[in-house]
Lab assay of single mutants.
Amino acid sequence: RKWEEIAERLREEFNINPEEAREAVEKAGGNEEEARRIVKKRL
């Protein structure tokens, strides 16, 4: 699934746990840019 690939990239890029990465992607509706913004806000 594409969402899992996005979550994996976010996890590696921001050094967050898989659960946090998945939550961000879900919140963003699968949009990678939006997920990235969500993760950055949390850091």
Rank of each mutant, 00 (worst) to 15 (best):
N17V: 08
E32N: 03
A35M: 01
L43H: 05
E34Q: 08
L10I: 09
R9Y: 04
L10A: 00
A28D: 00
F14T: 02
V25C: 05
E34K: 09
N15Q: 12
K40I: 15
L10Y: 00
E12K: 15
R1M: 13
R11P: 00
K2L: 14
I38M: 07
R11G: 08
I16F: 02
L10Q: 00
E5G: 06
A24N: 02
L43Q: 09
R9H: 06
A28P: 01
I16G: 01
K2H: 13
E5S: 08
A35P: 00
E32H: 10
E8N: 13
I6P: 01
R11C: 04
A21I: 05
E8I: 12
E13W: 06
E34V: 08
E4G: 09
V25D: 00
K41S: 07
G29T: 06
K41I: 07
A7F: 05
A35I: 02
A7G: 04
E26L: 11
E13Q: 07
R1V: 12
E13T: 05
A7W: 05
E33I: 08
W3Q: 04
K41T: 07
K40D: 11
E23Q: 08
K2V: 15
E12I: 13
I6H: 02
P18G: 12
F14V: 01
A21M: 02
V25S: 02
E13Y: 07
R36C: 02
R36A: 04
N31Y: 06
A7D: 01
E33T: 09
G29F: 12
R1E: 14
R9L: 08
I6G: 01
K41M: 06
K27P: 00
F14C: 03
G30Q: 02
L43G: 04
N15S: 11
R1H: 13
E8T: 10
E23K: 08
E26D: 08
L43Y: 06
L10N: 00
I38Q: 08
W3D: 05
A28Q: 02
A28G: 05
V25Q: 01
E20Y: 07
N31I: 09
E20A: 06
I6L: 11
A35G: 02
K40S: 09
G30V: 01
E34S: 06
A28T: 05
A28M: 03
A7I: 12
E13M: 07
V39E: 02
N15T: 07
R42N: 15
K41D: 15
V39Y: 03
R37W: 08
R22V: 08
P18M: 15
E19I: 11
N17K: 15
R37Y: 08
V25K: 00
R37C: 09
A35E: 00
A24V: 10
E20H: 06
N15L: 09
E34N: 06
I16D: 01
R22F: 13
E8K: 14
E12G: 11
E20N: 04
N31D: 14
A24K: 01
R1D: 12
A21N: 00
I6M: 12
V39L: 05
E4P: 05
A21Y: 02
N31R: 07
V39M: 04
E4R: 11
G30P: 01
E26M: 12
R22Y: 14
N31S: 09
P18T: 13
N31T: 03
E23L: 11
I38L: 11
N15H: 14
L10V: 05
P18R: 13
E8V: 10
N15E: 09
A7Y: 06
L43R: 04
V39G: 01
E32Q: 06
K40R: 11
N31Q: 07
R36L: 04
E8A: 13
E4Y: 10
R42E: 15
N17P: 11
R1F: 13
A7S: 06
R1L: 13
R11M: 15
A21G: 03
E32K: 04
E12M: 15
L43V: 06
E4T: 12
E34W: 10
K41L: 08
K2C: 04
K2Y: 12
E8Q: 14
A28H: 01
A24I: 13
W3R: 05
E8G: 09
K2R: 13
N31H: 08
E13I: 06
E20L: 14
N17D: 12
E23F: 09
G29D: 14
E12Q: 13
R11A: 10
R1N: 14
E12L: 14
K27E: 15
R22H: 08
L10H: 00
F14N: 02
K41C: 13
E4Q: 11
L10T: 00
A21L: 03
E23G: 08
E13H: 06
E8Y: 12
A7C: 09
F14H: 03
R42C: 04
P18D: 12
G30H: 03
I38V: 07
P18E: 14
A7K: 04
E32C: 05
W3K: 04
K27C: 06
E5Q: 11
E26F: 11
K40W: 15
A21R: 00
A28K: 01
E5V: 09
I16E: 00
G29H: 13
R36W: 07
K27G: 08
R9W: 05
I6A: 03
V25F: 03
E26H: 12
I16Q: 02
R37P: 00
E4V: 08
V25I: 10
V39R: 01
G29K: 11
I16W: 02
K27I: 15
A21V: 03
N15I: 04
N15K: 14
N31P: 00
R36I: 10
A21P: 00
V25M: 05
I38H: 06
E5P: 03
N17H: 13
A28S: 09
I6Q: 04
R11Q: 14
R37I: 08
E32T: 04
L43F: 07
R36D: 01
N17G: 13
N17W: 09
A7L: 07
L43W: 05
G29M: 13
A21H: 01
I38K: 04
W3M: 06
E26T: 09
A7H: 03
L43A: 04
E20K: 04
R11Y: 07
